[in-house]
Structure formats: structure tokens, C-alpha cells
Computed example of a mutant assay.
Amino acid sequence: MKVTVDEDKCCGAGQCVLLAPEVFDQREEDGIVLLLDAEPGPDQHALVREAAAVCPAAAIEVTEDA
């Protein structure tokens, strides 16, 4: 799994951080998403998929391994 984020789309809702705090964080000054782990381990995959699904700005993209 590979994760990318589009900071320009991010609205700072923070759902990703609540779901997968080992993969996502937020900037202090404006709440915009910070990607901590672009290739999270298998134990994080379900949480990352859920974070991408609930992101109100569709700022998280998940690419599954082929």
C-alpha cells in the first residue's frame, strides 16, 4: 500500500488523524494533514482505507500493491 495526500484539498477535519495516528498528523498552524508514513504496514491498512473513505475533502489517495 502507498498513501499520498493532497495538502491543497485538505480542509483540516482531522478524521484521518483520529483513525490512523501512526500514519497521519496535522500541522499545528492550520490543521492541514501531514503524512507520517507513505507505506504503512499491513496492520494499518484497514485504518488507512477508512481514513481515505471518510475524508470530507478526498485529500487521501491509497494505491494498493499490485
Rank of each mutant, 00 (worst) to 15 (best):
E28Q: 10
A66G: 14
C16G: 12
E29N: 11
E39W: 09
V3Y: 03
Q15D: 11
E7N: 08
A13F: 01
F24R: 01
L47K: 10
L34A: 06
E7W: 10
L34F: 07
A20P: 07
L47M: 15
V33F: 08
D65N: 15
K2R: 14
A20C: 12
D43R: 07
A58V: 03
C10D: 12
A52D: 00
A57Y: 06
A38H: 11
E22I: 04
L47F: 15
G12M: 14
P56V: 08
P21K: 06
A46W: 15
D6Y: 12
D8H: 06
V5F: 02
P56R: 09
H45Q: 15
H45C: 15
E22V: 09
A66R: 13
Q26H: 07
R27N: 03
V33H: 06
R49I: 02
F24W: 01
V54P: 08
V17C: 07
E61W: 03
D6C: 11
L18A: 05
E50M: 11
V23E: 03
V33L: 10
V62C: 04
V17Q: 08
L34T: 02
V48F: 00
R49Y: 04
E29M: 09
P21R: 10
P40F: 08
E22N: 08
R49K: 03
G31E: 13
M1R: 12
P21T: 09
E50Q: 12
R27I: 03
V17D: 06
D65T: 13
D43Q: 10
P42C: 07
P21S: 05
C16P: 10
G12P: 14
E39S: 12
V48H: 03
A20Y: 04
A51Y: 00
P40S: 13
L36A: 02
C55V: 09
A52H: 00
G31K: 10
A52Q: 00
P40Y: 05
I60E: 00
A20R: 01
D65Q: 14
P42I: 04
